[in-house]
């Protein structure tokens, strides 16, 4: 089965970005891992939300909260953070 019809340009951008982060934090794998965890949590919650698995009143991670967490992680890495912002809807 094909993955969701994502625009190839966005997909390529995402691949390049993840690769860049991986390289940047080669010597700090825990930062890279934390980044993956944040995205993983977000994705999981979005899926649960879509499938109606969240209890009423449950507040999943918003894009803004994801950004805030990543910002904390990427301190002093302004370029990575601003590039990350390009993936998010303008709040």
């Amino acid at each position: 089965s094909t993955p969701q019809a994502t625009q190839p340009v966005e997909f390529n951008h995402a691949i390049n970005y993840v690769n860049k982060i991986k390289n940047r934090f080669q010597n700090q794998p825990e930062i890279y891992k934390a980044f993956l965890e944040i995205l993983h949590t977000y994705q999981k919650e979005q899926r649960n939300l879509k499938e109606g698995l969240c209890p009423p009143g449950y507040k999943p991670l918003t894009e803004g909260e994801v950004y805030a967490q990543v910002a904390k992680l990427f301190q002093n890495q302004e370029d990575l953070l601003s590039e990350f912002g390009q993936f998010l809807p303008d709040a």
Partner: peptide
């Protein structure tokens, strides 16, 4: 060359989904 683990691929997928969402909410 890219040496991606399943977690890496999952991050790529999440990012591109976010980007798509962001584009949709643009107009």
């Amino acid at each position: 060359s890219y040496d991606f683990t399943p977690m890496d691929s999952s991050a790529v997928f999440t990012l591109s989904t976010m980007a798509k969402k962001s584009k949709e909410s643009d107009s």
